[in-house]
Design a binder for these strands. Structure first.
Lengths: 232, 232, 232, 232
DNA sequence: TATGAATGAGGTTTCATTCAT
DNA sequence: TATGAATGAAACCTCATTCAT
């Protein structure tokens, strides 16, 4: 709200050393972009740090002090970028999710069999979500959603409803092509993604008790839906 | 586990005034059992109230003041039953979950086809968990697990590992009896319960955006695993 | 708002020493009143301390920390009696002013010449307001009034409008009796009290530069209105 | 007093760009005087803005950010003109009051009857103080005086003591000429100006409850001192 | 055993001041 | 000279915990 989600990584700009030499020579625009870049860097550092802390401790137990320390900025600096703790949390979710959604929606239309498409999606999910901070973010949203309706709404609107719609389209295509037998599956695309969600939650909670081979689980699940395959 | 198992309702209850004079007349045992009963009642009220509050707000954002108010006791009273907020939370999970597990493990061995058994379990789950406080408790554990390893451990040990083991046994039986085709399913019993978990989470987060017919979804899922049925 | 302005000084109650002996023997009511008395004492101490601090520094520059320290209580204790700093300030004004107004309005109807009555009032004012904390309170209200409309409103309603009305009645009586020549004075009773107000403000601001004999000034002012007197 | 007396408007103004290239062509003196003029303008804007803000919120509650915004300068610019917030406030009072005092003291010696002179003064006061920012400044000084002895001292020295002295002289003249009967009035010139002060305070605090016709009140007050008049 | 007033550490937020550009 | 991003001390307020009653 204060700034705008300048998530775009400032290109071609390096944080110059503080020495007086850095000031000498250099176009005005360069200097300006340098300043702006520094600000963007700081903002990115705050976002990064906040994400880590919120994931590790949840919203209420996270201290702005710790976020500031981790981001290497002063406490007050956070308030130059975010109105308060709550809106920082809400923006955070947007900042992290929006680029992912954008990347996915601008992807070239997938080709191949429906199974291949779903597999591509699953593989993408495993690489980009399941074993990254974004996976933990999903758990965080599950955790804090009820207290942050704005977050739950946003997540539903941007991710869940789109994902469900996409999955339903794929399932219907699969049914039409005869790849999927279960016609009713189109009514509950949730079934298609349920194991993926479970994998994400499992990793945060029970990984140390019993590691879960998410990739293999998803493959087994797809076998269930598309029928068993021969090759690995 | 730390405190007394005051779950048993003690009989012979009488309400006495607090003053020392009130001690005159009345059997000691009656008074004692009275006190014990009152204490048990209070403890139960605290547990109940704490559960509601923790579910509604999460651990960190819950105030002991609110728990006390909801339970109808003074704040100090909570400390007569629980060491502190953290251990109250940890015990709470045990207190709520243990009886459920006990009931399930002492159930008469199920009979009928594997599908019938799984359906019985699913129906039970829908009735006893999905649309009750206990469903929210699951989400609470997902939310707070990373900050309460003891809770995650307990939940894994008492619920998850047993549930997984039970499901695996059922799946293997289903495979042996030819009811289930997918042999690999036994390696990931999580797949069997994933939609149930998703249903629970969906209800807390997205019910108002798009209500989910959990019962029907589970039926479709079972059709996927056991093959489509003819009758409803 | 939290408690109620229990300004009445708790009668016949002494703050007992903390030693265990103090608990021994004593009726329930006595103990209760003791507790209540302690609370009232603390509240009074907070009010007293807050008044001092607000007068000395103004609203914004006063630290609750200092109030607590001066009152001999912990910071949190203040919040058991007042919702927040603002409402503490607003209640404070009421707490201090209400008893004064009550005392004045329940006074026996004054007798004697109008001049005598005004003199009695002036003398009362000098004794009870001009050289006490309440005088400083008037300056405080002048200072903070614009930022605290509630305070200005209250002060106007309870003190100013009543005072103006009372003065007008007196002036009209004086005119009717021939003690006052200036008929127009009844239109501006403010003129009658203006020097008293000035005296109060002068004392806080300029006393050390040039002490002002308020009593004498008021006498000269009355001479102006009622005509010169012979005796001192 | 801390900074330069940049009140004198320097002539020969020109606007130059900041870049080194811009220095080519153009007299040095012109540039310098331009800068000085700009600086003086900025300083005046800051003073103006600060006055508004301090009057509206008091010293402690006023933010330099708001002053800067209102003055149309950056926050840092304020520090080029004033050492810090406190000394800005203290200088402010001087800056606003000094020209008023200067104008009054360089006025041609008043003529006519004493009443006429006092009336001229009162009329001047009503026009220049009572209904302007300067009236609010008086209330501000009353409000902040105790926390800013330097301000109270300055105000006493420059305004109050001179005003009192002037009034006393006028009163003594009035007594000598027989216009004023009350000889003791010379001992308390405060009485003469008290209603004017009250009018100023009344307008800030109670105008919306009960508007006060200050001009008429002052006339009635003068009637009291000089004896009733016949004409309007 | 039960109470709830009192505590004070610790959290969020503000804002005067600095300083690299 | 002018800027405004950054700082961090210091303010307000909350709430888990204690303890006299």
């Amino acid at each position: 709200m204060t700034k705008k989600p300048t998530t775009s990584a400032s290109p071609n700009v390096r944080t110059t050393a503080k020495g007086p030499a850095a000031a000498a020579g250099g176009e005005v625009t360069a200097i300006a972009s340098n300043r702006a870049a520094r600000a963007a860097e700081r903002r990115a550092a705050i976002v990064e740090a906040a994400l880590e802390e919120f994931i590790a401790r949840g919203f209420a137990a996270t201290r702005l002090d710790d976020i500031a320390k981790r981001a290497g900025v002063a406490k007050g600096t956070i308030y130059l970028h975010f109105k308060d703790k709550e809106s920082m949390f809400e923006e955070l979710v947007r900042i992290v999710i929006v680029p992912v959604v954008e990347r996915l929606t601008t992807l070239p239309p997938p080709t191949g069999s429906v199974r291949e498409r779903v597999e591509a999606f699953a593989s993408n999910f495993l690489k980009e979500v399941a074993n990254t901070r974004r996976g933990d973010l999903v758990r965080l949203i599950v955790a804090e959603g009820p207290r942050f309706p704005a977050v739950a709404d946003f997540y539903y609107r941007e991710v869940v409803s789109r994902g469900i719609a996409g999955m339903r389209a794929l399932i219907e295509l699969g049914i039409a092509r005869g790849e999927i037998q279960q016609k009713n599956l189109a009514r509950f695309p949730q079934i298609l993604v349920a194991p993926a969600m479970i994998a994400v939650i499992w990793q945060s909670l029970f990984a140390r008790h019993a590691p879960l081979d998410a990739q293999e689980m998803l493959r087994v699940h797809l076998d269930l839906i598309f029928g068993e395959r021969r090759t690995t």
